[in-house]
Design a binder for these strands. Structure first.
Lengths: 279, 279
DNA sequence: TCAAAAGTGTTTACTATACACCCATGC
DNA sequence: GCATGGGTGTATAGTAAACACTTTTGA
């Protein structure tokens, strides 16, 4: 009886009667690339970078944007993000962390479009990036974030890697608590970053820093086998401060294990390679 | 020129061409209610409770569900959640924490509907709850969550407060890591909880525990002025373990301040009332 | 007087931090 | 030899946990 009634109801129910938004995922793909090394005695420094695509369609044609795309009917939000990430990088086993929902009315001039944003830390050394259908090209940008503690202003600088013509993008944003106590970024200056992607990048950066130690994200940015110093450099680049090697070793030694393999070819004492125990 | 070209493009662009989901917010409203006190010498114990509504429309007619509703064109996702919370409780200044996106195909038999879920810890002592348009009634349910460490199974028990006929809801779920390393709940048993709301409640509970200390959520569950022991009871109920009063006091004393007012009327030494300094 | 919370003091263990020191390597 | 990272030891400071003890209240 009740089941019958329910079936009747569902048949009459037409979801088209209500206004609906388009839903997208945007992904902030992080990777760390080693600089060219001028001094053989020193370890290479790394730069935190994110993947951007240059749009070849309107709106924001020729601007740089985060990779992402529309949610399809047969997939979850995460699967959508994984699919987009895979289209862009070929990687299909990355870890994704949800950053939040971006839904401010007017954020996309094409209409009512909301975005669920994710971050994906990857080891990008061997990854070939390629643009999707609405992108002319994809490129890595070194990310530099500065924070003015007094004015609560974040400045971000992005500069392209591996391109003949260097591209530089800049933006500034003020952090505020919104009406329900969440951090929110209000962009005040923007040079070359499409949509509200500055806010998404800043949120992703904050989430990456917060989840770095508690969630083992640093290991995603390294190959499966790595030295402790490589792991330390990842932490240093993301936390943006130097760490003491002796203390760092003791702190993380319990969550990694020796591979037995010893690194060769460096102009200093060779190090053991470790792997993540996976908590 | 370029601006003109962009305008032309946007005019031709028809967002209706693409398939779109309906988007809702669901809110897990937490509150702690003191039990009746049989012993005047003891402080009342509290029970963690959540707010559910009984659906009076299909699907899941007569089942209990989380309050929530459809996203409107002129609001953000958070504003949608605030609006729904206000409709249900009259509160318009609660803190909301985003739990995540629930988007599994088929999660709602009415069609393609995805949900962004939030949690809202509130001080509910004086709040009158009422159902919205698709709800026959709203009621508080005491929430009890148990975890089997070996089998990775969560059991949740909900039992109604302040109702003539006691309602009991139950469910079990297995925790797994999904393909991108996030925790996911797979419901194995369910008695009376609508949609995938068991998963949402479990995610909310985990988020509440995780953010309790780092984010000052405990203060949302108390009136503006409170004793340290009241604050400790909130922590104890949520973390589900006893704490030592002497240590707890020292741990949180730096984030609260004295009001100067001293509690009266208890059958034991009166306590200072404090307020949250707000980090 | 008594039970229970309010509040202080103290001991012990653990963790974070800083730094001194030796080792191993390629140039 | 020497600069640099690899790795160990150790002293100090701060925090967390456990517990003993005194104070204050209403019944």
């Amino acid at each position: 009886m009740a089941a019958n009634e329910e079936m009747n109801y569902l048949e009459k129910y037409n979801i088209e009667d209500y206004d609906r938004p388009s839903v997208t995922s945007d992904i902030v793909v992080f990777s760390i690339f080693e600089d060219e090394n001028e001094n053989r005695r020193k370890m290479a420094e790394g730069k935190l970078s994110i993947l951007l695509i240059r749009r070849n369609v309107h709106p924001y044609k020729d601007s740089w944007a985060l990779p992402g795309g529309f949610l399809r009917k047969d997939e979850t939000m995460e699967q959508c993000a994984i699919r987009e990430l895979c289209e862009e990088t070929g990687l299909d086993n990355a870890r994704l962390i949800q950053i939040g929902t971006f839904s401010k009315p007017g954020r996309d001039m094409r209409g009512w479009i909301i975005s669920n944003a994710y971050l994906a830390p990857i080891y990008g050394e061997n990854v070939k990036v390629r643009g999707g259908d609405d992108a002319a090209e994809a490129a890595w940008f070194e990310l530099q974030v500065e924070y003015d503690d007094n004015k609560h202003i974040y400045s971000i600088n992005l500069s392209s890697r591996d391109r003949d013509d260097e591209v530089r993008l800049k933006a500034k944003a003020i952090v505020k608590k919104n009406s329900c106590g969440m951090d929110e970024y209000e962009v005040t200056d923007n040079d070359g970053i499409a949509f509200d992607h500055t806010e998404i990048i800043l949120s992703a950066y904050a989430t990456l820093r917060n989840h770095l130690e508690s969630d083992g994200l640093a290991y995603e940015l390294l190959p499966e086998q790595f030295t402790i110093m490589q792991l330390q450099k990842v932490h240093e680049v993301i936390l943006d401060r130097p760490l003491l090697a002796a203390n760092f070793r003791r702190k993380i030694i319990s969550e990694i294990e020796e591979t037995g393999i010893i690194e060769e070819g460096k102009a200093f004492r060779p190090a053991m390679l470790y792997r993540y125990k996976g908590l």
